[in-house]
């Protein structure tokens, strides 16, 4: 435990800026993965254990596209669009068959695909780790804000994730499609009876969730090494986020993800040997005091 370092940081603007942005970066990427997870749970009532695979595919799609076209924008697009299509196919062909089934059955199908997707990546891209490389445009000196260090790429990353969060939030609460999705989450039988194709909505939501995870993977690809199985550790943290924020809540996912990010960045200063433990401890505290999560009641 190193509380001096933590209090020292809290009183220094330079340290505060650096650690807060560091927390935001970790949190925003986590949010993109977790929000898909929570959305799919909210509407489809399925805990998508294979969600980490979409993060992984997003990163690989982005890397390959970037190496082929040298275009960062196309790489991001490929990461998001590729995983959206993959999500749609996955949902229509496999997941849609186990909707009414036992939770254990759904979990087994998802877990099977965790292994299958990892092997698919191994077959296509090889077992060794890969690196996408930072686009030349972002290979610049970091910005110094109030003495703190902020890399420009991370500003972009936070911005993109924030836009995604806002679009998603407004889209779900205001647009007609958003209303239908919320209605389907609430009472699928009635929505179906009103002549709306629920299969299409389910597929769409799954594709949207996959797309957001894929976008997170694509955004992370320039700074994280790519390996088969890379989705798993992200998935675990995303589960923590959804548990803290409340299953099915988008605001909860955002708040949970940012809290986890900040716990990691400030925790590593004050509790260098217990940073991981802090996350779980926080989760336990939330679970004990409010079992539904911080925003558990607001079903999406």
């Amino acid at each position: 435990m190193d509380l001096d370092a933590l209090t020292g940081c809290l009183t220094s603007s330079a340290c505060l800026v650096t650690q807060t942005t560091s927390g935001l970066i970790i949190g925003m990427l986590l949010f993109l993965v977790a929000v898909g997870l929570t959305l799919i749970f909210g509407v489809l009532k399925i805990v998508n254990f294979s969600h980490g695979a979409f993060y992984m595919f997003g990163a690989y799609f982005a890397m390959t596209t970037y190496h082929l076209t040298e275009s960062f924008a196309l790489a991001m697009l490929a990461g998001a669009a590729g995983t959206a299509i993959l999500g749609l196919i996955f949902e229509r062909v496999f997941m849609s068959r186990v909707y009414g089934a036992d939770v254990l059955m759904q979990l087994l199908v998802c877990y099977a695909f965790v292994l299958i997707f990892d092997d698919v990546v191994r077959l296509i891209w090889g077992p060794e780790f890969k690196s996408m490389g930072m686009p030349a445009a972002f290979q610049v000196m970091p910005l110094f804000i109030a003495g703190g260090v902020v890399p420009p790429y991370y500003l972009l990353l936070i911005g993109v994730a924030l836009v995604a969060a806002i679009v998603l939030g407004i889209g779900l609460s205001r647009s007609r499609i958003g209303k239908v999705i919320r209605a389907a989450a609430h009472n699928p039988g009635m929505v179906s009876a009103l002549g709306i194709n629920t299969g299409l909505i389910y597929g769409g939501v799954f594709a949207l969730g996959g797309m957001l995870a894929g976008l997170a993977g694509a955004l992370a690809a320039p700074v994280r090494s790519l390996t088969p199985g890379m989705g798993f550790s992200v998935l675990i943290e995303s589960f923590i986020v959804t548990v803290i924020g409340g299953m099915g809540s988008i605001v909860g996912a955002l708040v949970g993800a940012l809290l986890i990010g900040l716990i990691r960045s400030f925790g590593s200063l004050g509790f260098p040997l217990f940073t991981e433990g802090l996350m779980y401890l926080f989760m336990v505290i939330v679970l004990v005091s409010k079992p539904t999560g911080l925003f558990g009641k607001e079903a999406a």
């Binding site: 650690q19 927390g23 970066i25 970790i26 260090v149 994280r224 990691r264 960045s265």
Partner: peptide, 10 residues
């Protein structure tokens, strides 16, 4: 570990 940002900034 996938992300080292907090270690780097520390």
């Amino acid at each position: 570990q996938p992300d080292y940002t907090e270690v780097v900034t520390k």
